[in-house]
């Protein structure tokens, strides 16, 4: 029987450039995994391939998620199946408020699960309570998605979307990157609030202090050259902190 999420020999390219070159990884339910690796090693590519970004072309391998062939599903089917990515650079959507956007997204998931749409009152209540947890004002919810927000505000909005949609596989792509000291302190709030036996996280970051203090992972994987070259626990983070990725290059 395969794992909850089983990635086998996955290869993918963008344009003519091969980025993932036979990547394999087994992930269980309720676990927190950290992906580390030098720039260009394939961390973001893996995240986007799992979400179905049409920019990338899968050239080999397989991904099984909850027993299903993930790569055969559309972007929205994967989202409705519980995959969520907090984007490194969330796009701005002028003319669509965060409230409207979340209502559409939540109801799309409910329809896919065979549930009726959520009534307006329950939805607003759910949105407001969760917004509070990330220090997001009601006024911010009425503004167009990400338009005019600072880097820190955008990351809080990604956290909010994760909390509202309650996915069970969450990918956080450099949640702490480009933030000031105070913003970094709350970038991991989503993981802290939402971690539990039913939910798995993939966290990509170069910031070992952030990972150690806020994420507290169960497993750490090192990616080099489009493959996973080492699997372990937090001791791998300690090693990267001391010696960088040099040892792993040799193993790649």
């Amino acid at each position: 029987m395969s794992a909850w999420l089983e990635i086998k020999d996955l290869s993918a390219k963008v344009g003519e450039k091969e980025i993932l070159k036979g990547l394999s990884l087994s992930v269980g339910k309720g676990e927190i995994h950290v992906l580390m690796g030098p720039n260009g090693s394939g961390k973001s590519t893996l995240s986007n391939v799992l979400c179905g970004d049409p920019m990338y072309e899968v050239t080999g391998g397989s991904v099984t998620f909850k027993g299903k062939d993930l790569l055969a599903e559309s972007i929205e089917e994967r989202a409705c199946d519980g995959i969520f990515m907090a984007f490194q650079r969330p796009v701005e959507i002028p003319g669509v408020t965060m409230t409207t956007f979340m209502k559409y997204a939540l109801n799309a998931r409910r329809r896919a699960a065979g549930l009726s749409e959520m009534d307006a009152v329950s939805f607003i209540k759910r949105l407001k309570i969760r917004a509070k947890a990330f220090d997001i004002s009601e006024e911010m919810l009425k503004r167009p998605v990400n338009v005019g927000f600072s880097g820190g505000e955008k990351k809080r909005m990604e956290n909010l979307q994760m909390a509202v949609l309650e996915p069970d596989f969450c990918i956080l792509d450099e949640m702490d990157a480009g933030l000031d000291v105070d913003a970094v302190k709350v970038a991991g709030a989503g993981v802290q609030i939402m971690r539990g036996p039913e939910r798995t996280f993939f966290v990509i970051s170069h910031n070992i202090g952030f990972l150690r203090e806020q994420i507290k992972p169960d497993f750490v994987h090192i990616l080099v050259g489009g493959r996973v070259v080492a699997n372990g626990g937090t001791e791998l983070m300690d090693e990267v902190e001391k010696n960088g990725f040099s040892r792993f290059y040799k193993e790649a």
Binding site: E76, R78, M85, I93, A105, R109
Partner: peptide, 27 residues
Amino acid sequence: EQLYYMRARGLDESEARRLLTTAFLNE
């Protein structure tokens, strides 16, 4: 990129296209 972002949140393609187009015209 906007379409990908919206679909990655669960909106199907035609819903995302409709929402983006009406937002554009409603200005």
